[in-house]
Write a protein that binds this DNA or RNA. Sequence first.
DNA 1: AGAAAATTTTACTGGGTAGTTAAATTCTGT
DNA 2: ACAGAATTTAACTACCCAGTAAAATTTTCT
Lengths: 227, 227
Amino acid sequence: MSVGENEETAGGPVDRGRLDKRRAIVEAALRVFAQVGYAQASLDVIAAEAGVSKPTIYNHLGSKEKLFRHVMTETAARSNAKTLDVLTAFPTDPDQLRPGLEDLATKLVDCYCDEQSESVRRLLYAEAVRFPDLFDAVRASGPNQFTEALAGRLARLANAGHLRVEDPVRAANQFIALVYEELPGMSALGTRPLDPADVAKVVTAGVDTFLRAFGTEPAGGPGKVSG
Amino acid sequence: MSVGENEETAGGPVDRGRLDKRRAIVEAALRVFAQVGYAQASLDVIAAEAGVSKPTIYNHLGSKEKLFRHVMTETAARSNAKTLDVLTAFPTDPDQLRPGLEDLATKLVDCYCDEQSESVRRLLYAEAVRFPDLFDAVRASGPNQFTEALAGRLARLANAGHLRVEDPVRAANQFIALVYEELPGMSALGTRPLDPADVAKVVTAGVDTFLRAFGTEPAGGPGKVSG
DNA sequence: AGAAAATTTTACTGGGTAGTTAAATTCTGT
DNA sequence: ACAGAATTTAACTACCCAGTAAAATTTTCT
């Protein structure tokens, strides 16, 4: 038994201590990886940041590559869960479609612009060549699922006659594209803080365009016109 | 004696030879950087790939960081010039607005999906934390200029009554977002080849949505409906 | 309390890389 | 053709880092 962390046998202060260290390692690793990149990240630095010594990392995670994979998948899973949870806010009342979509979009971009989300995205971009499987895994468990779920909601609204959508998946992708749009560029990929007012403008404009294209009301309806 | 001293050049074989080496270095550096990232890129490998030895790189470019900056700005400048050139294809005939925009969008995404463009984008993402100035410089000289130019064209069409656009810059950004949309995800950031048919579908759908939102014809006009 | 087992730590190794120095080669001017 | 200037090259240095081995510490079982 090398690394038998039985979650069922929890309760002892021992395992708790080990798990704390493990989590400290993973959190520190994310910080360091995000700050200096995979190759530049030194395990000594990560160990120091985690308040742990280097071989402890090997005992827990095995190797630098495994640590990286673990950090990425775990962080992505957390972010993805939060993002999927946003769909709870999907509007069901057709009369509140616009404010509902704006609320949804605001929450969505909040998730996308979360610091951990941005870190993972940057690292995924950075290492897309050397960790293609990671890229696929994260996308499959995250954005793709969200798109599919959103597409389902849009399709329901379309069936009920509140939206004119022929290809729900494509419409979902376009919705995301419209409201997320230029935020990465504006924030330098999460490197600089965003002015919430600017974010709100982008979201409003995105939802506006989306409803112009897919809404059933006459164009230029309730949405205010001048930016 | 190394390879390829071409004396057949008119106007000074010397400088030509040196310039060739310099260009070989920059090209090799881009390849290596794109493949393994900034930190992992070894100057020895770059030198070998360029058919040159290491100090030659220092004589020409000074340091690894300067080499990187040079490679990035130079490659970005080339890509940006190509992209800006695409606006030549902007439709002027209002009767051909849809096919014109589709053509424009196709050429635009071709530029965006060019291998060098993708490489620079990945590296920019990867090093956004440590080279924030590079990020800003490339964006300022590239996407921002394109957006502004496109916005101007859209505004002209709007003034002539062929488009309903209030904020041309935002509309331009949304146009780009709609037609570029999911391509990075589909190609794993340029890591995998794209099926041109899929690209065409995304482009068509993007232009379709754009015209639904901003066009003056009644919705569901000449664009075919089923995907 | 005491012994055994596991884990953390200190100290080390082998490989690799950015940047430099002095010799060899190539090019310029006369 | 020849001497001098500039550039390319091979070999070298100092440094850093991923991963490992044995010692010290902590925890568990009797």
